[in-house]
């Protein structure tokens, strides 16, 4: 209790209270968090696969940052705009890579590199929103199902079974065709689908093991409400696992967006999938090796970013699940 009481003192950091040297609660928590992060990082950084993933994500982050900078400095807006740009100095589009257009131009005269860089940030945004939605839904539902058990548990788990079994892509195709999906809506749909499905089941099984720990009993004895116990004692302990599944959700989200855009079912103006869609609708796909810059940059970007998040997820798996580590 002495730790809590020092909160009343206005001073920052270490305090002497009743002869005992104490620290403020937030400092203790921060220190614990820092320590656990550092030990997790030590395990994570031993894993070359995870580090490769992290480096790729970092490079894509730089790419996302570079687009507005390039647009403001080197590239002039009329020629290099990813959506409405057109290069009048070139006779026929698509044109092969040149000094002016490092990755060539697409069939309607826009710079491929500019499109590639421009789309990166929206892919990140999509992935992050979908992952956040997944984790929010997955942890709360998993914790609630594990905490209450009984009918609530059965209903939620049967719902999860349903969501797991339904193949997501045909459902997304139908949704994409009948509703005008934009990026945010797609992020929410994917987040909800994966949040209610497999992630919930795994997080619930983890929550079951936490529910029987002594500190939950202690919280209950201290008079904590159900809500308080679930959200301040169970959920924080689920977060490492949830973080792991965030990575896999990002992969799913980016992949789904690309496939839907490729099919022309998304209501957005530019993305990697749309770049390939344009190559297809203009009839350049089967000459893919000849016009490689229309097909390869976007495809490789999608593959690499998906792979990077997947690899980071796998490396995190070893952090969360000690049984996978090398002995």
């Amino acid at each position: 209790m002495s730790v809590e009481q020092t909160d009343q003192n206005v001073g920052v950091g270490a305090e002497t209270y009743g002869g005992v040297r104490t620290e403020q609660l937030w400092r203790v928590r921060l220190k614990l968090l820092w320590n656990s992060l550092r030990s997790s990082w030590a395990i994570f950084s031993e894993n070359p696969i995870g580090m490769i993933g992290l480096v790729i994500i970092f490079i894509f982050g730089l790419m996302a940052l570079s687009h507005p900078i390039l647009m403001a400095t080197v590239w002039d807006a009329a020629t290099y705009d990813p959506i409405v740009g057109f290069d009048y100095t070139i006779d026929s589009h698509p044109s092969a890579p040149s000094a002016a257009h490092l990755l060539g131009t697409d069939p309607i005269g826009r710079d491929v590199l500019s499109q590639l860089l421009y789309s990166t940030s929206s892919e990140f945004g999509l992935g992050i929103v979908a992952a956040l939605v997944t984790v929010t839904i997955g942890t709360s539902i998993g914790a609630v199902a594990a905490f209450y058990g009984g009918v609530i548990d059965s209903v939620l788990m049967r719902l999860a079974d349903l969501v797991i079994m339904i193949p997501s892509l045909p459902l997304l195709i139908v949704l994409g065709a009948f509703f005008e999906l934009n990026l945010l809506m797609l992020a929410f749909v994917i987040g909800i689908l994966s949040g209610f499905g497999g992630v919930t089941v795994i997080i619930k099984s983890q929550a079951l093991t936490i529910k029987v720990k002594p500190f939950i009993e202690a919280a209950r004895v201290a008079g904590g409400s159900d809500f308080h116990i679930i959200f301040t004692h169970i959920v924080p302990n689920l977060l490492p696992l949830a973080f792991l599944y965030m990575m896999f959700t990002v992969t799913t989200a980016i992949f789904s967006e690309a496939v839907l855009s490729f099919f022309g079912l998304m209501n957005i103006r530019m993305s990697w999938g749309i770049m390939i869609n344009l190559a297809q609708s203009e009839g350049y796909l089967l000459r893919g090796f000849e016009f490689w810059w229309l097909l390869f940059p976007a495809s490789i970007a999608i593959t690499l970013l998906c792979a990077a998040f997947y690899l980071v997820g796998r490396a995190l798996d070893e952090v969360v699940n000690p049984r996978l580590r090398k002995r």
């Binding site: 893919g288 593959t303 998906c306």
Partner: peptide, 25 residues
């Protein structure tokens, strides 16, 4: 393993297309 991860996360339409381009075209 790296090849496996690549195959697992490859952009499926592109992969299918590459199969056509290589073996078909």
């Amino acid at each position: 393993t790296v090849l496996g991860v690549g195959l697992y996360t490859v952009f499926t339409p592109w992969f299918a297309l590459m199969m056509i381009l290589i073996f078909g075209a």
